[in-house]
Every structure is written in structure tokens, then in C-alpha cells.
């Protein structure tokens, strides 16, 4: 009976949100403790390493850096050009969002539930609905925040869907999770739509959760069935959803994300770039 009420409250109402946020703090120590063997292994891998290997690694990193620097030179030019063009178009001029690096401390054990625990919380300025990315694409959004840890819902979870657009022609679609970290499904794709295998899908910025322009997935397979109203399209997520140790929390430059009007009191500790205190706000549903 109590269970039935609890389940009802959990599924149908936001009543338990505050308690759920607090529970993240209770659950996280288990994940951290269970992760200790891997931490030790990683520690020993980085500390107990021979000099030759270090030199080799160093050289490899140097050459990689060189390649990236060359690309960066072009990027500076392209960014400037992009800004000029955007000014011509009179649109919002930056895609440069502040980011915060977070470590992944645990993965929800149930294979159906695609959630991960990260080691940043409201003390670092993390808020519910915050987008999370990795080096290659979008990972998901923050759904529960405690003071030091938070839970991220991955884009591959069955309860998740994200507005995307095809990078090639700008057609807007919805990509939904299918319960597998290797595929997303596209909803309501007309059979006549201009979509090809290999098309890049980027976040469209609709829905006010994800900022526009982050890569989400590439189209893998399109099946046209004349008996059905829509084509069946499967896409592979760009982000490496099942093999990340570090993720980036994006502080999007939109005040629309803030739920309350309280300004963030303590400046976040570990920002890569210092945030404007106007833009980072605490969600009001944190208060019990």
C-alpha cells in the first residue's frame, strides 16, 4: 500500500524531486566505493610506468598537439568569420559556452536505465536540465542534483528524446532513446524526407534544454516500408556513451534555463572559465 503511494508519487508527480536530489548524495558513496579497484588500477597505471614509455607517450602527445594546433589556427579564422556572418544575420553571436569537467563515478546498474552519476553537484553550479557533452557529442542532461553529485540521464534512455536537425539541410526531427547505447531512433520521418545514411544530426536548440549545434548522432540505416506512414531511421550516437570517464557540463548562455530568481551565492569552485553570476542560477526546486 505504502509502496503503491510511493510509486504513484514518484511516477506521476514532481513531489519527490527534492528527496530524490538528496538521495543522490546517499547513493553516490556506493558507486565511489565500488569503483575503488578501478581507481587503484588507474592510479598504478599512471604512476608505475617506465621512463621509456613516458618519453614515447610524450612524443605521441606532442605530435598530436601539433596537428591540433594546426587545426586551431584555421579555427580562429573560422570563428572570426562565423561571428561576422552571424552579426550580418543579426543573430545571437556565440556558441562558446562555459564548461565544467566532471568525472563519472558510477553507472546505474540496471541495463534498462541509462543514467550515470557524476562528481559535481549544486555546489559547483550544476542545475537540473543542464546539458552534458563529451569530446565527440551530446551525452544527456542532468536530472537530479545533490550538493556534490548529480545524476545524468543519457540520450539513449527510453524516457529521453532530443530535438535534432540534419546538419546538411536543417530539417528538424526528434531523436529518441531506444534503451541501447549504440542506437537512437528518429520519430515521424516522412518517406519523402531528404535524409541519407551518414547524415550528421546536431541538436537544434528547440526544447530549451540543449543548446543548438552539438553533434548528437549519425544516421546509420533508413528503412522505407510502403505499408507504414513513416520511414524507420536508426542513428548511432556520436558521444561514446558507454566508455567515458570524463564529461563536460555545459553552462549554456540562456537565462531561460533558470527556474528561480535566486542568484547563485557562492561562486562555483572548479570552473574552467569564471561564470557571470547572472547566468548561473540555482533551480528553485532544490528547496524543500
Amino acid at each position: 500500500m505504502v509502496s503503491a503511494v510511493l510509486v504513484g508519487l514518484f511516477v506521476a508527480t514532481p513531489f519527490l524531486q527534492g528527496a530524490r536530489d538528496k538521495a543522490v548524495g546517499l547513493a553516490a558513496p556506493f558507486y565511489k566505493f565500488a569503483d575503488l579497484p578501478r581507481d587503484i588500477a588507474e592510479w598504478s597505471r599512471t604512476r608505475l610506468i617506465s621512463r621509456d614509455e613516458l618519453i614515447q607517450k610524450n612524443e605521441a602527445l606532442r605530435s598530436e598537439l601539433l596537428v591540433h594546433q594546426r587545426k586551431l589556427q584555421q579555427l580562429a579564422f573560422l570563428a572570426a568569420e562565423n561571428t561576422r556572418l552571424r552579426q550580418l544575420l543579426n543573430s545571437a553571436d556565440n556558441l562558446n559556452h562555459r564548461v565544467l569537467v566532471a568525472d563519472l563515478v558510477g553507472v546505474a546498474p540496471d541495463p534498462n536505465i541509462h543514467k550515470v552519476f557524476i562528481n559535481r553537484g549544486s555546489d559547483d553550479g550544476v542545475y537540473v536540465g543542464q546539458p552534458v557533452v563529451d569530446a565527440t557529442g551530446l551525452i544527456g542532461q542532468v536530472v537530479n542534483v545533490s550538493s556534490n553529485d548529480s545524476v545524468v540521464l543519457l540520450i539513449s534512455d527510453t524516457s529521453h528524446a532530443i530535438p535534432v536537425q540534419i546538419n546538411r539541410n536543417g530539417v528538424r526531427l526528434i531523436a529518441e532513446g531506444r534503451g541501447s547505447v549504440f542506437e537512437l531512433g528518429l520519430r515521424h520521418v516522412p518517406s519523402t524526407l531528404d535524409i541519407k545514411e551518414g547524415d550528421l544530426l546536431v541538436s537544434s536548440g528547440l526544447g530549451d534544454i540543449y543548446p543548438a549545434g552539438y553533434p548528437v548522432a549519425t544516421v546509420q540505416k533508413i528503412t522505407y516500408d510502403p505499408g507504414r506512414p513513416f520511414a524507420e531511421v536508426v542513428a548511432i550516437p556520436k558521444a561514446q556513451l558507454n566508455r567515458n570517464r570524463h564529461v563536460l557540463l555545459v553552462f549554456a548562455n540562456k537565462t531561460r534555463f533558470s527556474f528561480g530568481d535566486q542568484a547563485f551565492s557562492a561562486p562555483p569552485k572548479a570552473m574552467l572559465k569564471k561564470p557571470n553570476s547572472d547566468n548561473v542560477k540555482e533551480p528553485s526546486n532544490d528547496n524543500p
Binding site: 509502496s3 510509486v7 519527490l16 556506493f30 546505474a108 545524476v151
Partner: peptide, 24 residues
């Protein structure tokens, strides 16, 4: 048993009450 189930629900991040009702 219900309490243990609730603890599991909290830790695994699923729906609260699921493991509680099952274990009870």
C-alpha cells in the same frame, strides 16, 4: 524487507518503491 528494498531503489536510481514492494 521493505526498508531494504527502498535502500536498493535509492542506490540504483530506479523508481522508488519498485524493489521495496517486490522484496516485501
Amino acid at each position: 524487507a521493505w526498508g531494504i528494498g527502498l535502500a536498493q531503489d535509492v542506490v540504483v536510481g530506479g523508481v522508488w518503491g519498485a524493489h521495496a514492494i517486490a522484496l516485501a
